[in-house]
Design a protein around this nucleic acid. Sequence first.
DNA 1: TGCAAAATTTAGATTAGTCTAAATTTTTTA
DNA 2: TAAAAAATTTAGACTAATCTAAATTTTGCA
Lengths: 217, 217
Amino acid sequence: MNTLAEENYLKSIYHLSISADNVSTNQIAAALNTKASSVTDMLKKLAEKALINYTRYQGVNLTPSGEKIAINIIRKHRLWEYFLVEKLNFKWDQVHDMAEEMEHISSAELIDRLDEFMGHPRHDPHGDPIPDSEGRFKTAELKPVSALMVNQCGIISGVRDHTSPFLQYLEKQQLTIGKKITITDIIEYDHSVALKTDTEKEVHISREVANNLLIAL
Amino acid sequence: MNTLAEENYLKSIYHLSISADNVSTNQIAAALNTKASSVTDMLKKLAEKALINYTRYQGVNLTPSGEKIAINIIRKHRLWEYFLVEKLNFKWDQVHDMAEEMEHISSAELIDRLDEFMGHPRHDPHGDPIPDSEGRFKTAELKPVSALMVNQCGIISGVRDHTSPFLQYLEKQQLTIGKKITITDIIEYDHSVALKTDTEKEVHISREVANNLLIAL
DNA sequence: TGCAAAATTTAGATTAGTCTAAATTTTTTA
DNA sequence: TAAAAAATTTAGACTAATCTAAATTTTGCA
């Protein structure tokens, strides 16, 4: 198997690959809170193991086997997050660090049984899709609230920012996964958005929040 | 916090301390499948951290803070084993290696909630007591079946051997935790034991099995 | 298009944990 | 009770992962 460090690199490369074809050394260093020189060393090792395609100075991308490993770690992370929230009653802003440790538990049998125990959930507490045991999953077409127009409505289905402060703020405003919202006004001046929930609650959110809150139409 | 290696050393020292006051370098090396020289190095580090009392050539024992850490790891191990058997339907002979990884998940809050989720179980699937969040637990006074006399009865409450083959054998003979048994005969020649379960099933076990099967009277 | 800035890699160290082989201490036993 | 055997420690080396500082390559913009 792979070391903990290797797994974390693969996971980071996977996440960074979403928005770019090739991932740079510095991007990885920033994501993992480490130095570029350390990243270079590890990239050589991962390339040696054929988990990434790496050309000096040109950035990297995952090979199919590297991607498979990355997706499996993400599957484990999201299933454990679901477990922590649904079974152990943690809040959605509390579970990330714990899942960060638990995602490295190796047994595939364990994770498949956990999946079954929870009824094969499709999404983690933040709305991110949970890959199945074959690594398959579909990313829903989500839009930020900031992309909607007045009177449009949709269901809160994901977040772009997974940090505690943001999640706690959403929780306080009752803007949680599954809630239906309707845009009531868009303030030209600062691009902030007024909206109401299905319980007729009126909420006013900043442009930044509207950008990080994702909607399924 | 402590590293994974440190935690494993403390746990091993704790387990070995049950049957001896001081634990030797070689005993630890055998338990951890490593070399005596590696153990010496680690003992110096643990002594430096005041987790063990160590005098060169004289073996070691845990300090109160070392013992506290060891018991906490054992608590986590046993709670996860219980989870795996009771919630994920693993057999009692399948869970050791998984729990060996899971015992290093650090969050105390997580383990306390897991404990609560499962209704504060007192014993793991092998009958071993689960320490509470303060590290308290009582070891029941258990006797090996080999210490009983004909017509004595008792409840199967623990095992001395935790290996898969032994546990699988017991399972096949329906000699599992909680079963009530009565000694029907003791064969002088080889010290093997005949017994019957509460379902009137007759079983004949070797001296070795009788030694490793523990009973509460 | 050529040079400065930014990004990346290399070189050389460091730390944790491990190992083998040699040296030392303790224990056993003749 | 002294030598042999066993246990333990020390010395020196190795691997994984990291770091800083210096060297190299790429990029971008004047």
